[in-house]
Amino acid sequence: MGLALFNTFILLLLVVAALLALRVKDLLTASVVFAVYSFLMCLLWAEMGAVDVAFTEATVGAGISTVVLIATIFNLKRKSSD
């Protein structure tokens, strides 16, 4: 039951993070929130027993892809229209 509660909590946070990442108008904030989303996903997978996938997601999703997104936004406009 405890694990199920943890699972449910993370799953609901995931939806919040996903909506927030798409909602904010600042692209820098969006990419940071997307990193939070990736890390929550990583926690969820570690809890499900997929440790290799969780490790990859922690390094790639929360690490590299955020850096790459920010490095690109650095060369673009930071504000988004929607």
Partner: peptide, 25 residues
């Protein structure tokens, strides 16, 4: 460590490579 120890623990080429690239980044 992650690359070489991927046989007995979570890890492997992809994760080790990403970590190595991240250190240069």
């Amino acid at each position: 460590y992650v690359l070489a120890h991927g046989h007995v623990s979570p890890g492997g080429g992809f994760q080790g490579g990403v970590l190595m690239g991240a250190s240069f980044i």
